[in-house]
Design a binder for these strands. Structure first.
Length: 240
DNA sequence: AACTTTGTCAACCGCCTATCT
DNA sequence: TAGATAGGCGGTTGACAAAGT
């Protein structure tokens, strides 16, 4: 009944302003409630999508650079159509943007790239090509288990066979410099956290270093305090 | 100049998973 | 523990613009 009244289609500037103000007030959470509170005739999903893909601060709207294109190519080679996962490696870019870019630009290039780079190699061989041998032991895991990998603070080696060496391929990329520039625009507290994590673990909360670091002061109120530090706007990206 | 084709991108849809009650 | 709800994700659609004929 109520849903029939919901607006669809392109967002108006006025709606963007209202949504931005409401998110600033309530944070990026409980989108259905947020949509109702805003007074917009939009679904929570629609609000979330508009925010995540267009209104969110620090989004890049320009052309995908050659560097970014290369990363997309390589990550797609490894992960397939895991757009949100790929987007996590490209700060300021959304999964939707990368997906669209892939469809319109990269699909053909990828076939050429695959042929030129890997020939008939399997996945394992592809990984080995992408990652220097000295870096194939990685400090990270994607299952959130911080008992695996290497903690860069304590130096403790938590390595296990659950690790994903693929991620390390980008730690020494020139792209890291660009990310640092991006982070430097943030508040000092937020920047400190992100710089720390980036240098160790390439922007992934599931990184052992990060979680181990968090665990040093682990208590029930920790996430609350992190919420306030991050002003909510980047918590999604990290907590996901 | 008019029409058709192709490319781009914002937005929606439906499914799946996580969380809440 | 089960059902309801919210959020996240990948696939798809459709409007619009640019390029081609």
């Amino acid at each position: 009944m109520q849903e029939e009244k919901l607006r669809k289609g392109p967002w108006l500037e006025e709606e963007d302003e209202i949504l931005t103000a409401t998110v600033a007030l309530l944070g990026e959470r409980r989108w259905d409630a947020l949509a109702k509170a805003s007074g917009l005739s939009r679904s929570g999903k629609s609000c979330r999508l508009r925010w995540m893909n267009y209104l969110r601060p620090n989004l890049k709207h320009g052309q995908i650079s050659a560097e970014e294109q290369q990363i997309i190519l390589q990550l797609h080679e490894l992960w397939g159509n895991k757009w949100s996962r790929i987007a996590q490696r490209l700060p300021g870019r959304t999964d939707n943007e990368i997906k669209n870019y892939w469809k319109s630009n990269l699909r053909k290039k990828a076939q050429v790239h695959e042929q030129e780079t890997f020939g008939g190699l399997g996945n394992k061989a592809k990984q080995n090509l992408l990652i220097p041998e000295c870096e194939r032991v990685t400090p990270r895991t994607h299952n959130g288990d911080f008992t695996s990998g290497k903690d860069c603070i304590s130096g403790t080696d938590y390595s296990s066979d659950t690790l994903e060496p693929l991620d390390f391929a980008f730690l020494n990329s020139p792209y890291e410099v660009r990310l640092s520039d991006w982070i430097s625009c943030w508040s000092s507290e937020k920047s400190e956290i992100m710089q720390h994590q980036w240098h160790c673990c390439s922007l992934d909360l599931s990184c052992s270093c990060y979680t181990a670091w968090i665990s040093k002061d682990s208590d029930d109120g920790l996430w609350d305090s992190l919420d306030s530090i991050w002003d909510l706007d980047y918590s999604k990206m990290m907590i996901d």
